[in-house]
């Protein structure tokens, strides 16, 4: 199992705000790795730095052996890093089908697009029923399914999910997490950012704990769950 993604001492900024202060982490092929931490810890920023939406001022991001630190976002997607952003980012005035088509933007083979779409519908049958509906008219859960499905259209080597449980009813959160687990079992590497640390740690192999732009702790998910600091700060166990 090689390292699929590796960050070394990454520093990112929003204007003058120093958001990531030297993040180093790695994700091995076939793993589910989760980043947990409170609001503003830099979880989303880490994903945004990997996918090229912002560029690191210092440090290196390496994907499958290639240094992608200064690559543009649309190039990184083509290299196999799918990013399902926070707030889902679906296109409200495109239909479900068009949204999925967009996910396969860099694929030129219509047959392959159709195949992938069938796979997505297998995973989320609900989307197939809504195929001609506008993205903006879907419920929150359906939108999340669409966002994940869209991220899968390119069959990415690593899928980065940002807060997939946000704003969803508990029963839907279970559906989403079951799907993530299933995807991983089928071979997709997952990097998961979650507020719901308990859920995240229950499906992840390893985890990193972020605090104000720095990694303060890393371990196997099982061990993190039992860690006193994690329990107190993120799992609500006194």
């Amino acid at each position: 199992m090689g390292k699929l993604l590796e960050l070394t001492n990454v520093h990112s900024y929003y204007g003058h705000i120093h958001a990531l202060k030297g993040i180093s982490l790695h994700v091995d092929e076939g793993e589910i790795v989760t980043l947990i931490g409170s609001n503003g810890a830099g979880k989303s920023t880490t994903l945004r730095t990997i996918s090229g939406m912002i560029h690191a001022r210092e440090g290196k991001v390496i994907l499958g052996g290639t240094n992608i630190t200064q690559h543009e976002a649309h190039v990184i997607v083509g290299m196999g890093a799918g990013h399902v952003p926070e707030g889902r980012g679906i296109f409200p005035k495109l239909t479900v089908q068009e949204n999925l088509d967009m996910g396969a933007y860099t694929i030129n083979d219509p047959k392959l697009i159709k195949e992938r779409m069938e796979l997505v519908f297998e995973l989320f049958p609900r989307l197939k029923e809504r195929i001609l509906q506008y993205g903006g008219t879907l419920s929150g859960g359906e939108q999340q399914m669409l966002a994940i499905g869209r991220g899968l259209m390119l069959n990415p080597r690593i899928l980065m999910l940002d807060e997939p449980s946000m704003g969803l009813a508990p029963v839907l959160v279970d559906v989403i997490f079951d799907t993530i687990k299933k995807l991983n079992e089928q071979g997709t590497t997952i990097l998961l950012v979650e507020q719901n640390a308990l859920m995240a740690l229950s499906i992840a192999h390893r985890g990193y704990v972020l605090q104000t732009g720095e990694i303060v702790l890393t371990d196997d998910a099982e061990k993190l769950k039992k860690n006193e600091m994690v329990q107190k700060s993120y799992l609500g166990i006194e």
């Binding site: 996918s51 090229g52 939406m53 543009e72 976002a73 649309h74 997607v77 083509g78 799918g82 990013h83 952003p85 980012g89 679906i90 296109f91 409200p92 005035k93 495109l94 068009e98 088509d101 967009m102 996910g103 933007y105 860099t106 869209r150 390119l154």
Partner: peptide, 18 residues
């Protein structure tokens, strides 16, 4: 379709490889 996608959500469009 890409023009419409960029109009609706520019960051998301770049994450689609556009």
């Amino acid at each position: 379709k890409a023009i419409r996608a960029v109009a609706q959500d520019r960051p998301s469009a770049s994450l689609m490889g556009i």
